[in-house]
Simulated assay, not measured.
Amino acid sequence: MIKVAIVGYGNLGRGVERSIKQNKDMELVGIFTRRAPETVKTEGAKAYTMDHLKQKKGEIDVCILCGGSATDLPAQTPEWTHLFNTIDSFDTHAKIPEHFAKVDQVAKSNQTTSIISTGWDPGLFSLNRLYAQSILPVGQTNTFWGKGVSQGHSDALRRIEGILDATQYTIPNKEVIEKLKAGENLDLTTRDKHYRECFVVLEEGANAEKIQEEIISMPNYFADYDTKVHFISKAELDQNHKAMPHGGTVLHAGTTHDNTKQVIEYNLQLESNPEFTASVLVAYARACVRLAKEKQYGAFTVLDIAPKYLSNRTDEELRKELL
């Protein structure tokens, strides 16, 4: 049995707990939280303080880190990789090389294994971009997200001083998608492909104008997009904006001999973004433990992992059933 710890228990951590129940080769050691454990309502797992995690070192094969990318994971992943094999879902694309280098140094120094930036983008979409560009080197790749709730962007909003709660939607430009499918070669900016819509609940006395400017100018999150900000009540947010659907498309339009058009499309439609992301993390947790057993220490991404490492089936079963 693979012994797993969940570090952080928000929507993603809850999704990981549910996913582990569907994987018969895994056992959940516990949930480790910054909150008082007695206040954390899990779905059966025991909750511990974050400080208690160090005491469980010999009982854990891999820690799945479920904090946010804005401030949690840049500190937590290197910190816990000192002691454990780790998985995270760090999704600030522009900062992945920096995050990788930091975690890689810690993991190699301490003979641990860490797979960073795991999920569906970065993650599964990264793989599909690699496959498409390798197979059709003459072509153009575009990625579209949504319409859906971005957990990372919503988390970044909630960390702004003066915001009580918030939900952010990423919305793709459908007209652009159809033109690309038809074979048009478009020179697109980030702003052309998506826009972002924010529904924000302010704390009492907060300056709406100042907060709106802080949102639309936030680097790596909103500055490169057309962003609409709606200030609404907590009741309206809870009633209309608490579901977490998402999805997206990787679209690669390329050509082979004599300008023959070929299109590769990979699409996800998700009723629950955190539960799907959690399921990806759990599969890669299995891969992480296998790499560690092979003494492959350091940081890795999904681009480094052989697909068979994700499965609980034998190589013989995979060749028979999937090839």
Rank of each mutant, 00 (worst) to 15 (best):
M1G: 08
A5N: 06
G8L: 04
G8W: 01
L12S: 02
R14Q: 10
V16C: 07
K21L: 11
Q22D: 00
Q22S: 09
D25K: 01
E27A: 01
V29K: 06
G30W: 00
I31L: 00
I31K: 02
F32H: 00
F32K: 02
A36F: 10
P37K: 03
V40L: 00
V40K: 02
K41T: 00
T42V: 01
Y48E: 03
Y48N: 06
Y48M: 05
T49C: 01
T49E: 01
G58C: 00
E59K: 05
I60M: 05
D61L: 04
D61Q: 11
G67H: 03
S69D: 03
A70W: 09
W80P: 03
T81I: 05
T81N: 06
L83T: 00
F84E: 05
D88I: 00
D91P: 05
I96Y: 05
E98S: 08
E98C: 02
F100H: 07
A101S: 10
V103D: 06
D104V: 08
K108L: 14
T112F: 13
G123L: 13
F125M: 12
N128L: 15
I135K: 15
P137I: 14
N142Q: 15
W145G: 10
W145E: 13
S154K: 08
A156E: 11
R158K: 09
R158F: 05
R159G: 04
R159H: 07
E161D: 08
D165Q: 04
A166T: 01
T167K: 04
I171T: 07
N173C: 10
K174M: 14
K174A: 13
V176R: 13
E178H: 15
G183L: 12
D187F: 14
D187K: 15
T189V: 08
R191C: 11
D192F: 14
K193M: 13
E197V: 02
E197W: 08
F199G: 04
F199H: 09
F199I: 05
V200F: 11
L202V: 02
G205R: 12
A206D: 00
E209Y: 10
E209P: 02
I215K: 02
D224H: 11
D224I: 02
D224L: 08
Y225W: 09
V229N: 07
H230A: 10
H230K: 14
H230D: 02
I232Q: 08
L237W: 08
Q239C: 07
N240T: 01
N240L: 07
A243T: 04
A243N: 09
G254K: 13
H257C: 15
Q262C: 15
V263Y: 15
N267Q: 15
T277N: 06
A278D: 03
V280Q: 01
L281V: 03
A283I: 00
Y284S: 10
A287T: 01
C288H: 04
V289P: 04
L291P: 02
A292W: 07
A299V: 05
V302S: 05
V302T: 09
L303W: 06
A306P: 04
P307V: 04
S311H: 06
N312F: 13
T314Q: 11
D315E: 14
E316Y: 11
E316I: 09
L318V: 00
E321C: 05
L322N: 11
L323C: 07
